[in-house]
Write a protein that binds this DNA or RNA. Structure first.
Lengths: 152, 152
DNA sequence: TTCCTTGCAAAATATTTGCACACCT
DNA sequence: AGGTGTGCAAATATTTTGCAAGGAA
C-alpha cells in the first residue's frame, strides 16, 4: 500500500473532504499497480471489489484526486487519459514515460533526472522571464518502437 | 504559403496519392496560421472557403497528413487534438509548447534547442539501450499560468 | 476501368451533467 | 439540518466507420 488509510484520511480531512469507500478503493487500485490505467480500467478493478461503485464516481474522484495533487493525468496518444499516483511506493516520484507506438506499452524511466532538472530549470527560467509565465509543471515523453514490435 | 502547391503535389504523387482540393485547402489553412487548431477549428476555416467539404474529410486527411509526416498532432489537456504543419514558414521547425492552464493559450518556443538536443540525445541513447527501444520522437511541454491569468 | 477519395449518416468512445437520494457531522 | 458524495440515466464531445457515389489516372 502506497500510504496507509489513516494517512489518506488525514489528508482528506485537512481539506474538509470525506475519505469515502469509493475513494479508498480507487487509491488502493492505483497504489497496487505499476500500470498506467485509464478511468475505465480503474473502474473495472474497483468494480471487482465493490460492484456498486459507479463509473461516474470513478471519473469524479479521479478529478478530485488530481485537484488534490494526489494523482496525475496523462495522455499517451490513445484516445483516453491515464492516471498515476504521484507518491507511490511502486515508482519513483519523478519519472517520465517511454511509449511504444506499436503495442502501446508504457515504460517508466528515471534516468538522467539530474541532468533533466538542470536543463528544465534553465528553460523554465528563460521562459518565465521571456513570456511572463509561472511554470508549474512539465511533461517529457518519448515515443518509439519496442523490440517485439520492431521484429513484427 | 508554407510550400507551393506544386511542391505538395509532388509529395503526394511520389506516394501514389492525389493532391485533392480538400487536401489543398487544409494545408492552406494550416499554413496560414500560427495557432494550434483542433480538427473542428480547421473544419470551420475550411468550410468558409469550401462549404461542401465535410468534417469527416478533415479528420481523414489530418490522419493522412500525419502519416505522411507533414503534420503533427498534439494533446494539450483540453479534450481534443491540435494540429501543426511540421514545415511551416511561420514557425521554427523544431519547437515546443508552453501551455497556460488558465486560458489554454499555447506559446511556441525554441529557446535552448541546442542544449535540449544534447540532453535528448543522451537520454535517447541510454533508453534505447536499456529498454531496446528505437526512439523516433519526443514531446516536451511546459504547463503554467500566464501573466493575465495570474492577475485574475 | 481502377481505385483513391469524399460526403453523409450512423456508430463508437470517452467524459460530463442533472437530479434525487444517501450519508456524515 | 446542511453540505458532501454517490448512482443512474441521459447528454455531450470527439472521433471513427459503413457505404454509395464522385473523380482523377
Amino acid at each position: 500500500m502506497a500510504k496507509t488509510n489513516s494517512k489518506w484520511q488525514e489528508r482528506f480531512r485537512e481539506m474538509g473532504m470525506r475519505f469515502t469507500e469509493p475513494r479508498r478503493v480507487i487509491l488502493e487500485v492505483l497504489g497496487d499497480t505499476v500500470e498506467h490505467l485509464s478511468a475505465e480500467e480503474i473502474y473495472m478493478r474497483v468494480y471487482k471489489k465493490h460492484p456498486n461503485i459507479g463509473l461516474t464516481t470513478v471519473y469524479r474522484n479521479l478529478y478530485t484526486l488530481e485537484q488534490m495533487g494526489i494523482v496525475t493525468k496523462f495522455h499517451f496518444g490513445d484516445g483516453c487519459h491515464r492516471y498515476e499516483l504521484i507518491e507511490s511506493n511502486k515508482k519513483p516520484d519523478h519519472h517520465h514515460h517511454l511509449v511504444c507506438t506499436g503495442c502501446k506499452r508504457i515504460i517508466d524511466y528515471d534516468d538522467f533526472m539530474d541532468e533533466e532538472i538542470e536543463y528544465i530549470k534553465k528553460v523554465e527560467k528563460a521562459l518565465s522571464r521571456k513570456h511572463s509565465f509561472h511554470i508549474t509543471d512539465h511533461v517529457i515523453q518519448f515515443y518509439g518502437i519496442c523490440k517485439k514490435c520492431k521484429a513484427a
